[in-house]
Nucleic acid binder design. Structure first.
Ligand SMILES: [Mn+2]
Ligand SMILES: [Mn+2]
Ligand SMILES: [Mn+2]
Ligand SMILES: [Mn+2]
Lengths: 220, 220
DNA sequence: ATAAATTTTTAGATTTGTCTAAAAATAAAA
DNA sequence: TTTTATTTTTAGACAAATCTAAAAATTTAT
């Protein structure tokens, strides 16, 4: 695989993420929305990526990654998440500060670098937000997890990830002293707005349906 | 300072390096040579950098960095050299492998990242090739050093840097078991070709004038 | 000082990635 | 099944960075 431009890499990564929501095909507009660009620009790039056999594209039909496109996308995600681990574990960044820097670092081209970095970090399988890190072959360790909002009253679980990893949400969790590994018990669910009363090591708090719908937990 | 493109940054860095050889003004052609591009492209970029007050440029007159251009250039060099330290000290890269990767990493934009990285590395003042690392204010610790070729017969010195840091030269030094910190004693100088007989911890070797002219030492 | 050689700049073209506006295809509604 | 609305693609323009070829300025040599 010859070197790709930043732009090509960003498109592949975006298509990869959108494919997990729409495995049957990713629409031009959804790509444009996510990348904050115009549909016409997307069409141009899809032709280019198709030419390079990174996506399978037929006009008006939506797009899917080919095997080689999928592998490239995973390698970009791998780099992104490994760098996030590095920033948090070794440079004392907080989990809400690392994404934008990783957006840059994910484009650094060097197999040796990323393999050495992975070794240095102890070959982690999760990033600071609980997202899985593909290995050098693209294999991804699956972990069972569900949304906090899916728990029933009385159930206990451990926080293992976030669905929304925006800085705003992460800072909210910090304020509530909820982080990966935090044990959460569902005490009560309000029928009116689906808000949850939960108990953490820190005490009892109420979280909205929106919060509970963006926090991944594993029953323990 | 608003964000610069990679290209702008590379021009600034090149001008910075060339200014140490030609403090009176850097020629268009010398920039083109070093960057392996065309003089006409250089002229275009000089106009752009001049517009941004990063260089002082008058046509046909050569170019110099302004104060703000100098500072920007030093920050890029700082990033380059800090990343080289990271790669060698923490990811087990050899000193001949780090330059190309640092060429990419030097463009990552984040003050916080580079300050944290410097702290993580223990705020080093030298990179793996013995080159000085500017601090966050652009200050550079001067160290007295001279070329091995300038030593007289009988003098002893410590290897403290390389003038040429090409992979080829660095690998040659590895083969001769010469690295930063190696003590060198000049045993004899051939009048015919200026080659030197030197003694290192490893024994006695002969090095050409070209080698001796690319190795910095400090008399100890 | 004039001519020749070199350096530098301009003029115009190219590539990449983007945009707007309009046309074409598809999907939804009546 | 037409009509209407939405999505997607095309056509054409633009900015950034590059290139080639030619013109202009400077330097060197005669
Ligand atoms: Mn991220
Ligand atoms: Mn992440
Ligand atoms: Mn270097
Ligand atoms: Mn170096």
């Amino acid at each position: 695989m010859k070197p790709m431009t930043f732009s090509e890499e960003n498109y592949l990564k975006t298509i990869y993420h959108l494919m997990s929501l729409h495995p049957e095909g990713v629409s031009t507009n959804s790509i444009a929305d996510k990348m904050e660009t115009k549909a016409s620009s997307v069409t141009d790039m899809l032709k280019k990526l198709s030419e390079k056999n990174l996506v399978s594209y037929k006009r008006y039909q939506g797009v899917l990654l080919t095997d080689s496109g999928l592998h490239e996308a995973k390698m970009i995600v791998r780099k992104h998440r490994l760098w996030e681990v590095f920033l948090v574990e070794h440079l004392d960044f907080k989990w809400d500060e690392v994404h934008d820097i990783a957006e840059q670092l994910e484009h650094i081209q060097s197999e040796k670098l990323i393999d050495r970095l992975a070794d240095f970090l102890g070959n982690p399988t999760q990033d600071p937000h609980g997202d899985p890190i593909p290995d050098a072959d693209g294999k991804i360790a699956k972990t069972e997890k569900q949304l906090l909002s899916e728990l029933k009253v009385g159930e206990k679980a451990i926080c293992v990830g976030v669905k929304d990893s925006s800085s705003e949400f992460l800072k909210y969790l910090d304020k509530q002293q909820i982080s990966l590994g935090t044990t959460i018990e569902v005490l009560e669910k309000e029928d009116f707005d689906q808000s949850l009363h939960i108990r953490t090591k820190q005490g009892e708090v109420v979280v909205s349906q929106k919060i509970a719908g963006n926090l991944f937990v594993r029953k323990g």
